[in-house]
């Protein structure tokens, strides 16, 4: 049987991002992340677990690894996060923010 290769996801090169906490001291505690696709001029606002997943993509990893790490971060089961994480990755990929 042919072995299926799990693709590695990584941030696209042509992206830039700013944490709200980078903007000034008064934003301490905010979890917002502003993300830009430098080719399409499209901007995104990520909140809650979005920035956590973006941070985890600081190096290439498979969807399985990512789901495991998200589950560990939020102390829940992998099954709980599987659907949302895959959907989130797919959304970012469609808009050119991540590639694999």
């Amino acid at each position: 049987m042919e072995k299926q290769i799990d693709p590695l996801y990584l941030r696209a090169e042509h992206t830039a991002f700013v944490y709200e906490t980078d903007l000034d001291d008064s934003q301490e505690g905010s979890d917002k992340l502003y993300l830009a696709n430098l080719l399409t001029s499209e901007l995104l606002v990520l909140e809650g677990s979005g920035p956590v997943i973006w941070d985890l993509l600081d190096e290439p990893k498979t969807a399985n690894t990512l789901m495991t790490q998200v589950a560990e971060t939020f102390e829940v089961s992998v099954e709980t996060v599987e659907g949302p994480v895959l959907s989130f990755l797919s959304s970012l990929e469609n808009q050119g923010f991540v590639q694999h």
Binding site: S41, E42, L43, L44, V45, L46, E47, G48, S49, G50, V52, I53, F74, E75, V76, T80, V81, P84, F88, S91, Q95
Partner: peptide, 15 residues
């Protein structure tokens, strides 16, 4: 401009 808000407001409880 297409500003899209990914509503992923999550914390441990709401996850």
């Amino acid at each position: 401009l297409r500003t899209i808000f990914l509503h992923t407001a999550m914390n441990t409880a709401s996850l």
